[in-house]
Design a protein around this nucleic acid. Sequence first.
DNA 1: CAGAAACCTTGCGTGCACGCAAGTTTGCGT
DNA 2: ACGCAAACTTGCGTGCACGCAAGGTTTCTG
Lengths: 207, 207
Amino acid sequence: MTERPTGLREQKKEATRKALREAALRLAIEREPDNVRVDDIAQAAGVSPRTYNNYFPSREHAIVAAVTADRESRVAAAVRARPDARLADAVADAIVDAYTDPGEHGREALLLITTHPALRQTYAETTSSALEGPLATALAERVHADPQTARVLAASVAAAVRIAIEEWARPSGALVVPSGPLPDLLRAALAPLAPALDAVESRATGD
Amino acid sequence: MTERPTGLREQKKEATRKALREAALRLAIEREPDNVRVDDIAQAAGVSPRTYNNYFPSREHAIVAAVTADRESRVAAAVRARPDARLADAVADAIVDAYTDPGEHGREALLLITTHPALRQTYAETTSSALEGPLATALAERVHADPQTARVLAASVAAAVRIAIEEWARPSGALVVPSGPLPDLLRAALAPLAPALDAVESRATGD
DNA sequence: CAGAAACCTTGCGTGCACGCAAGTTTGCGT
DNA sequence: ACGCAAACTTGCGTGCACGCAAGGTTTCTG
């Protein structure tokens, strides 16, 4: 499933992708993100600037990809892994797990993303859109509703996550409340959707 | 509220904006959208190319703005106008009303947007994001929940609308079902969210 | 009504995204 | 082992978004 289809060309591609996102993150940390040209990233990774855009659709994406990794598909897998739990709980737990303590280098990188407006937006955006697809598939399997319903619910969850992340990464001009740690924000944002998840779950079970 | 703050500078600005979006739509219809440069639109509207981007953030936005107009804020107003109806119904009706029969020139323009991938995406995207803010405000007034909850629900509704529009504007390679007219798609996409809207409504009422 | 302040337009320069058409590498069948 | 086809990289060219600063217009203020 997550194995390499053939072997060697795929390795090279993955190596290049990794080199690019790590170079992007490293450069963004040591200089300011604004002072990093895409040419620099490409050069640091040993490829042409044109190739950079074969891997990432924008300058910001490589940087956030260094943090994001494959969280989104792990969320989908975690939801699948608990078919007995209440759906709303399974979703909330999976998301909180995935977005809690993003790892070692993540700490400094997240500060960077939080600080920088363009990165903030790309982060929330890609997180949300990357989550929508896999989660929709997982939901469609889990409840036996039509794909459209699963897609709407997945998109709603993704939107809630995006809002939580935006809230969490807000500049917070010291006037408003710090609005708490990310896990709490995530659960609070997901709470309003619980009735909808419950409904589709019971409807599927009772059907 | 929707009045001009002072007068004359605002008139000129609105005139320019209107000239730009109408020029954009006209050119996009008579040539193909791909054959319309932003320079052409600017010239047709009698402003410099640089000024174009002071009004619209991308080439596609002017075209979809010609169709979109101010639908999104009308949705918010319509929700506010029916404080007695069930929230889920008020939202669904308001949205269906706003997105049904977009007007005269809309017919041809919508075909154009439907046909063209980049326009489709911009259309669904701006529609959704333009809806989220005003609707969140309206919801926050209507139910007396915290703003965060209102925002999540508004974003979910916006996501559902986006999905319905995407589905409706899908190329539909004649293999899948035509998936029906837009109002039906909208109601179907909004249906899964009704429990969440009911819940926040009763919680606010009972509170 | 004159001067100032706010605002808008515009040209210029830069960086970026991407289509296209070579040129090069990898994989596979025979 | 060989050669072809698919896939990847790269340079080039184009169009676009946008920061910046100069100049013009509208609005505000005394």
